[in-house]
Amino acid sequence: MYKFAGRIRYSELDREGKLSLESLLDYFQDCSTFHSEDIGVGLKFLQERHLAWVMSAWQIIVERYPVLGERVLIETAPYDFKGFIGWRNFLMETENGERLSCANTVWTLMDMENMHPARVPDELHAAYVLEEKLEMDYAPRKIALPETEGERREKVEVRQHHLDTNHHVNNGQYIRIAMEYLPEGFAIRQMRAEYKKQALLGDIIVPEIYRPADNICLISLNNEEGQAYCVAEFERNMGIV
């Protein structure tokens, strides 16, 4: 697996003094970006071909949240390509090999000129070395919402700070928005996210909250017509450290 070393910073902590889920997601996303840059198929390569990898689904499982100053290794490897879809695993460990968190992701390669999926070209296939799938408890990509209506919250307008280099809301920003609606003290063991539409500058996001079980919180971030941009599922674990 491709890997880089990190150290948990104060700016990455939550109120409990542990690495926040949003910062964990950033570590994973940065790891995949570093990987692509280091093998020559990074941002410039994709932009010259009017291509971009767009996140379709996240699954993150947390075993333990590291604390301030702890040294960690962040690792990633793609394990499959089919048509315009790519699959990639992530892992965060301590220097001693303790597994802190693992993740599975599904990506769609997009032609940014016509905003249609594009088959993965041979040069991308050749650049990445596919590895075995990480051993973890894989969840379905799709997230089903309850049939009952959720609790709607105040609208959120997409601002500049929500956007990435593709000029749409970054996948991590959806998770940051969704986490604002979690109950107090909700310790996250697993996060799943399914991305359905791209939100752009000035778009309005309408959060809708569901609590199908005591340990589950579902948040659908919709447009004003009720169509989901992103659906995020958070599973609670009171015993997590």
Rank of each mutant, 00 (worst) to 15 (best):
E147G: 15
P146C: 00
M136G: 10
A139M: 12
Q59D: 13
V120Q: 02
A178I: 10
I74E: 04
P207E: 08
S56G: 15
M115P: 01
G83T: 02
E123C: 13
N104I: 03
C230T: 15
S36D: 12
A213P: 06
V169F: 04
L218G: 09
D122C: 01
Q190Y: 00
D30K: 11
L73V: 13
S23P: 11
D26G: 07
L124T: 01
Q173K: 14
V169C: 03
R88Y: 08
T108D: 05
E208T: 14
I143R: 06
I61D: 15
A103C: 13
F186E: 06
I74P: 08
M55W: 00
R211P: 06
A118W: 04
Q198F: 01
Y181Q: 00
V106E: 02
Y138C: 05
I61N: 13
P183M: 08
D26Q: 15
R141L: 09
K142P: 02
M112Y: 03
D111K: 07
H162L: 03
R119P: 04
E132H: 08
E235N: 12
P207V: 05
L200G: 12
R176L: 11
N223A: 06
R152A: 13
H168V: 07
L68V: 04
T33H: 11
T94N: 10
S20D: 09
T33P: 01
Y195C: 08
F186R: 09
L51S: 02
N89D: 15
A5K: 15
T148N: 13
D80W: 03
F81T: 10
L24I: 11
E70S: 02
V158A: 06
G239P: 00
P207A: 08
K142V: 09
G226V: 07
N222D: 15
D30L: 07
E154C: 10
M55D: 05
Y27N: 09
Q190L: 01
T165A: 06
F4A: 00
M112H: 06
E157K: 09
T108C: 15
I60S: 06
A103M: 14
I175P: 05
I143H: 10
Y27H: 15
E157L: 14
A5G: 14
R176W: 07
Q198Y: 08
V231K: 01
E70R: 11
R49D: 02
E225G: 12
